[in-house]
Deep mutational scan, measured.
Amino acid sequence: TTFEIRVGDLRITLHNADEEEIRWAEEALRRGIHADEILRTLEERRR
């Protein structure tokens, strides 16, 4: 599944994310964390 998060002009697309990952990514985007860093962190958490 694919889920797109939008916060203002910012956007990130997550693939195969669970609800916790989606909530975490949305909050991180709101705090101004760059999408590349969010994706990198999620990848590390999945390992």
Rank of each mutant, 00 (worst) to 15 (best):
T1E: 12
T1G: 13
T2I: 12
T2H: 15
T2Y: 13
T2F: 12
F3M: 12
F3T: 15
E4L: 06
E4T: 06
E4A: 01
E4R: 01
E4F: 04
E4C: 09
I5T: 02
I5R: 00
I5K: 01
I5V: 10
I5C: 14
I5Y: 02
I5A: 02
R6N: 14
R6F: 14
R6P: 03
R6K: 15
R6M: 13
V7M: 05
G8M: 03
G8I: 03
G8V: 03
G8T: 02
D9S: 13
D9R: 02
L10T: 13
L10W: 07
R11E: 10
R11F: 14
R11G: 12
R11D: 05
I12W: 08
I12R: 01
I12L: 15
I12K: 02
I12C: 04
T13R: 04
L14C: 05
L14E: 00
H15M: 13
H15K: 08
H15Y: 14
H15S: 09
N16R: 05
N16E: 07
N16Y: 07
N16Q: 06
N16V: 07
N16T: 04
N16K: 05
N16S: 06
A17C: 02
A17V: 14
A17Y: 05
A17I: 07
A17M: 09
A17E: 02
D18A: 09
D18K: 11
D18W: 09
E19T: 08
E20P: 07
E20F: 08
E20C: 14
E20L: 11
E20Q: 12
E20K: 09
E20D: 10
E21Y: 02
E21H: 02
E21K: 00
E21Q: 03
E21T: 03
E21I: 03
I22R: 08
I22G: 03
I22F: 06
I22Y: 08
I22A: 15
R23N: 09
R23G: 10
R23V: 08
R23C: 05
R23L: 13
R23S: 11
W24F: 13
W24A: 02
W24T: 02
W24K: 00
A25E: 00
A25K: 00
A25L: 07
A25I: 08
A25S: 07
A25T: 07
E26H: 07
E26N: 08
E26I: 10
E26D: 07
E27F: 08
E27Y: 09
E27H: 10
E27R: 08
E27W: 13
E27M: 11
E27D: 11
A28Q: 13
A28C: 09
A28N: 07
A28E: 14
A28V: 03
L29P: 00
L29T: 03
L29H: 03
L29S: 03
L29Q: 02
R30W: 07
R30H: 11
R30A: 09
R31S: 13
R31G: 09
R31C: 09
R31E: 11
G32W: 01
G32K: 03
G32N: 07
G32M: 03
I33N: 05
I33E: 11
I33F: 11
I33P: 00
I33A: 07
I33M: 15
I33Y: 08
H34N: 14
H34I: 07
A35E: 12
A35W: 05
A35T: 11
D36L: 10
D36V: 05
D36A: 04
D36Y: 13
D36F: 10
E37F: 07
E37T: 10
E37Y: 08
E37D: 11
E37I: 10
E37R: 06
E37M: 13
I38E: 00
I38M: 06
I38L: 07
I38P: 00
I38F: 03
I38A: 01
L39D: 02
L39M: 11
L39N: 05
L39C: 15
L39E: 07
L39I: 15
L39R: 05
L39Y: 15
L39V: 08
R40K: 15
R40C: 06
R40M: 11
R40E: 14
R40P: 01
R40Q: 11
R40G: 06
T41I: 11
T41G: 11
T41K: 10
T41A: 15
L42F: 05
L42H: 02
L42S: 01
L42G: 00
L42Y: 02
L42V: 07
E43S: 07
E43Q: 06
E43T: 03
E44I: 08
E44A: 05
E44M: 05
E44Q: 06
E44G: 03
E44F: 08
E44T: 05
E44R: 03
R45T: 08
R45L: 08
R45S: 11
R45H: 09
R45Y: 09
R45V: 11
R45M: 13
R46Q: 04
R46E: 03
R46V: 04
R46F: 04
R46N: 03
R47E: 15
R47V: 15
R47M: 15
R47Y: 15
R47G: 15
R47A: 14
R47Q: 15
